[in-house]
């Protein structure tokens, strides 16, 4: 199947007084129809900047797309004028923002905010738009939709507001949905509901989803494929099972190891030492090397290319080079992976 979205060698930089901050430094990925790609990484790894670039939402200045292309259905978004872009934005590509408190307009009724896109993009009449808005609210699980349309955002709880934000994003049946930490601000129970709503809708509309999060539990729940970002680059990408059951990059090991599993362990968590690098002066070689227990001499000198692990699984670490010593992931990650397979076997029985 053809790719819905293809990002090639994307570089995004911000010009600040201190110098150029290279927030995204050469990112490649693609998303197919009906597929969910999760991007994980710490704050500052460039995951949000990447999605903002896809939407053409990088404020310029200081930001700029330095290099690369973003092909949406074969058309390069980076070369489009603002006017053309705004025809796609909100219609074919929609975004769910992290914070429902700030992404809704507090002075506008919720109904009008949902109808806005419908009237603008689909040239619907007001009454048609209202009908669709009602459907959407019901779709995302808001009861009393008729009444709720006339209310303002402050009359909604956090979870409800996020549902409204999702309804707005879905209004024009987008082909591509960008979700930037859509559930991070929510409680687990509401998070589970929202994720279910998103999956149902994806099934129905066959949209592609780019899902940004730092919660690996959520990733395991929603993703078909996962891209792990570190210091502005994708360091590992693969099917969700590859990333969780056969991770190859030390950073991915670190992320997996730092989450406690419900299988109780009294040992110390595997914490990644240090903090992410300063992207004004990205380190030479492998950006993760200074924090990695597995760094070799070459990691500090030369940047690793993407090594192919299997058909869809790639990782950028010298450990995969044929001359590299064979290394096992840290013990806590290994026991955890063993624990997982056992746990899931039990889960199947229940």
């Amino acid at each position: 199947m053809d790719n819905l979205l293809e990002v090639n060698n994307l570089h995004v930089s911000f010009d600040t007084y201190g110098g150029e901050v290279k927030a995204v430094r050469g990112v490649d990925f693609s998303v197919k129809k009906g597929e969910t790609l999760a991007i994980v990484g710490e704050s500052g790894s460039g995951k949000s900047v990447t999605t903002k670039a896809l939407m053409g939402l990088i404020p310029s200045p200081p930001g700029r797309i330095k290099e690369g292309e973003i092909l949406f259905e074969g058309k390069d978004l980076t070369k489009m004028k603002d006017k053309e872009l705004s025809k796609i934005r909100g219609k074919d590509i929609a975004m769910i923002f992290q914070d429902p408190m700030t992404s809704l307009n507090p002075t506008m009724k919720v109904g009008n905010q949902i109808m806005e896109g419908l009237i603008k993009h689909q040239k619907k009449s007001k009454s048609e738009a209202k009908k669709r808005a009602l459907e959407l609210l019901e779709l995302v699980g808001i009861a009393n939709a008729e009444q709720r349309l006339k209310q303002y955002p402050h009359q909604f709880s956090g979870g409800m507001r996020q549902r409204v934000v999702i309804a707005i994003a879905l209004a024009c049946n987008p082909k591509l949905l960008l979700a930037d930490e859509p559930t991070t601000a929510l409680d687990v129970t509401i998070q589970a509901q929202i994720l279910e709503v998103m999956k149902d809708i994806q099934k129905e509309m066959e949209s592609g989803i780019v899902f940004i999060t730092h919660d690996l539990g959520v990733v395991a729940n929603v993703a078909d494929r996962v891209a792990v970002m570190y210091a502005g680059k994708i360091v590992e990408i693969g099917k969700v099972d590859d990333i969780f059951y056969n991770p190859k990059h030390p950073y991915t090991w670190g992320l997996l190891g730092s989450m406690p599993s419900l299988d109780s362990t009294d040992d110390e968590l595997y914490a990644i030492p240090g903090s992410p690098p300063d992207l004004m002066h990205p380190p030479k070689g492998d950006a993760f090397a200074p924090r990695s227990d597995f760094a070799m001499k070459i990691d500090f000198e030369q940047e690793p290319p993407m090594f192919k692990v299997s058909e869809d699984h790639y990782a950028a670490t010298w450990l995969l080079h044929e001359n590299a010593p064979a290394v096992q992931p840290p013990e806590s990650v290994q026991t955890r992976m063993k624990g997982m397979t056992r746990e899931s076997a039990e889960g199947d029985k229940v």
């Binding site: 687990v188 129970t189 998070q191 589970a192 994720l195 279910e196 919660d215 690996l216 539990g217 959520v218 990733v219 395991a220 729940n221 993703a223 969700v240 099972d241 969780f244 059951y245 997996l256 989450m259 599993s261 419900l262 997982m340 397979t341 746990e343 899931s344 889960g347 199947d348 229940v350």
Partner: peptide, 23 residues
């Protein structure tokens, strides 16, 4: 029970078979 069943775990196989319990 509902709270525990809503925790997403970093384990894709478990997530596929997870059943949520509503309170």
């Amino acid at each position: 029970k509902s709270l525990l069943s809503a925790i997403p775990l970093p384990d894709p196989d478990y997530e596929r078979s997870r059943r949520r319990f509503n309170y």
